[in-house]
């Protein structure tokens, strides 16, 4: 979905539908939004939008939990969007930021992947612990089950068949994942953490 300030909307049918809703409702925005949210073109626009740094940071913190209340270290968190290219409340000019693919360069891609991976790789965070515990309830997991379980609990995150194939190939290197003993539980927790880190490093995960 293009950023409106860079590229005009692409779907004329969508524009016409919303325009009609706006007129028929005698210019009521809620009615337009009702039509928009129920439309197939809106639902099909999922995962088309490159997350802004603010979305990456806030979305990740909400996923992993534990940051609901202020605590030491928040100062560094507030700088993370800046490292990814979006210094909040301080755009490069009064015109705001260049968005969309311009969020991505070699440095910012590294910054966003490393930030999210750092969070999802930490099993002490409640959201990550919850993911691990949910997977644990399924017993011993095959590589495919580990990958699909992690994809589901992280989002669900939709990845291409090629990406899934690589994730499964990585899980196959580890074999079966289970929590039957203390030793295997430690290994399993570590494997889940690494799989989560790999998933958030995928191209697909950069979209919302």
């Amino acid at each position: 979905m293009p950023a409106w300030s860079i590229e005009p909307p692409r779907e004329q049918k969508a524009i016409d539908t919303l325009t009609a809703a706006f007129r028929q409702s005698r210019f009521d925005i809620r009615s337009v939004l009702r039509v928009l949210f129920n439309s197939s073109f809106f639902k099909n626009a999922r995962f088309q939008h490159l997350k802004s740094p603010a979305e990456v940071v806030v979305g990740s913190l909400r996923l992993v939990g534990g940051y609901e209340l202020p605590r030491p270290g928040y100062g560094d968190l507030s700088m993370q969007p800046a490292y990814m290219g979006q210094d909040l409340l301080n755009p490069p000019s009064v015109e705001g930021w260049h968005t969309g693919p311009e969020w991505i360069n070699s440095g910012s891609l590294m910054a966003r992947i490393n930030f999210v991976a750092g969070l999802v790789g930490d099993p002490s965070l409640p959201g990550v612990r919850a993911i691990i515990d949910r997977l644990k309830t399924k017993g011993s997991l095959s590589p495919e089950q580990l990958v699909d379980g992690c994809l589901d609990l992280l989002g669900p995150v939709q990845v291409s068949p090629e990406t899934r194939k690589e994730l499964v190939a990585q899980a196959k290197e580890w074999g079966q994942t289970g929590w039957a003993s203390e030793t295997s539980a430690k290994t399993a927790d570590k494997r889940v953490g690494e799989m989560l880190q790999l998933i958030v490093a995928t191209r697909e995960y950069q979209f919302a």
């Binding site: 490292y83 990814m84 290219g85 440095g107 910012s108 590294m110 910054a111 992947i113 490393n114 991976a117 750092g118 790789g121 690494e194 880190q197 490093a201």
Partner: peptide, 13 residues
């Protein structure tokens, strides 16, 4: 975008 010493992917692994 940060210190050169920390430049690299997935440093936690």
């Amino acid at each position: 975008s940060g210190p050169l010493e920390k430049y690299g992917f997935l440093p936690n692994i």
